[in-house]
């Protein structure tokens, strides 16, 4: 028997001492990818930021300067390019939501063979390379394309083609991003049970009220993730804006490429890349916040 009060109980010895030691195996497993990300992603970002802020001085050394940024934000042409990029991204996000949400809702709440075909059709663009899509677009909606030929055949006037206008990249990028957006929204809708919807209808909700009060709040995170992914890709896209878009103003992707290769101004091209990265990271933070919030739940 131990004395009452004051007695300090000895801590029992752990049966397996290795239980109390931290094992480094997990860290070792992630070390290689983390190093690769550091080398191929983080370092180029840091290097680009440094190269735009510390530039060679006349005395042979380096000096801190915001010269290239000041030029970018005071140059009408650069600002127009940034504006058209933001406009294209915004329009694409809007169209993707308007097009993909009904498709996802249909696929989630319908059964049978037709939804399976619709799903295959919605996923199909994922397997079509952007360059092929761009040329298909030109052959269909371009000047003297298939639509024009069909309209002409029935005696109707030609369409005003979106090819080489800001709408060209919008149409191409929306088409290109439909599969990923549909898949992400569909996965979010999978978490909305049929019974949750039936319960809402049971208490008197009509279909639009079910959508507004029950479905949309439940898939808010999925919408955010889908749009973040799409916007990140669209903002810095190159092929479709390069082939389908106007020569001026142009989106940031072709603009960077032309500044680097045609104008031969790598310093300015890097500045444009850092500014593009700055916008993309905002959308990236939305995505990270959404994932973190889900993990928290």
């Amino acid at each position: 028997m131990s004395a009452a009060g004051g007695a300090v109980q000895a801590q029992p010895e752990p049966l397996d001492e290795s239980e109390t030691r931290r094992r480094p195996y997990g860290l070792l497993l992630v070390a290689a990818p983390v190093l690769l990300v550091g080398w191929l992603v983080i370092w180029p970002i840091v290097s680009a930021v440094i190269r735009t802020l510390w530039q060679p001085a006349d005395d042979g050394g380096y000096e801190f300067t915001l010269e290239t940024y000041v030029f970018f934000f005071s140059d009408r042409y650069s600002l127009d390019n940034l504006t058209v990029t933001l406009w294209t991204t915004g329009m694409c996000a809007l169209f993707l939501l308007v097009i993909c949400l009904p498709i996802s809702l249909y696929l989630r709440f319908s059964v049978g063979r037709l939804p399976a075909y619709v799903q295959s059709l919605a996923i199909f663009p994922m397997f079509v390379p952007s360059i092929i899509l761009a040329y298909a677009f030109i052959r269909v909606l371009g000047p003297n394309g298939m639509v024009d030929i069909l309209l002409n055949a029935v005696g109707l006037p030609k369409i005003r083609t979106p090819y080489l206008t800001p709408w060209g990249p919008v149409i191409g990028l929306v088409w290109d991003n439909i599969p990923l957006t549909v898949l992400i929204l569909l996965s979010g809708l999978g978490n909305v049970s049929n019974q949750a919807i039936e319960a809402a209808r049971d208490v008197g909700a009509r279909w639009l009220q079910v959508l507004w009060y029950i479905i949309l709040p439940r898939i808010g995170n999925s919408i955010l993730v889908a749009l973040s992914f799409s916007v990140l890709g669209i903002f810095s896209s190159f092929t479709l804006p390069y082939v389908l878009g106007p020569a001026a103003p142009e989106m940031m992707g072709p603009f960077m490429q032309r500044t680097f290769r045609d104008v031969n101004d790598p310093q300015m091209a890097i500045t444009q890349a850092v500014i593009t990265f700055g916008f993309c990271i905002v959308f990236g933070l939305f995505y990270v916040r959404s994932v973190a919030r889900n993990r928290g739940k």
């Binding site: 949750a196 209808r201 208490v203 009509r206």
Partner: peptide, 29 residues
């Protein structure tokens, strides 16, 4: 349709709306 019937159903899986608190779940109708 269900929303126009004078019936109330309690489901096996509860079917509560997890984005609403208890008060809002009950007050929704």
């Amino acid at each position: 349709p269900p929303e126009k019937r004078p019936t109330g159903m309690v489901f096996q899986s509860h079917a509560l709306w997890s984005h609403m608190n208890v008060f809002k779940n009950i007050a929704f109708g």
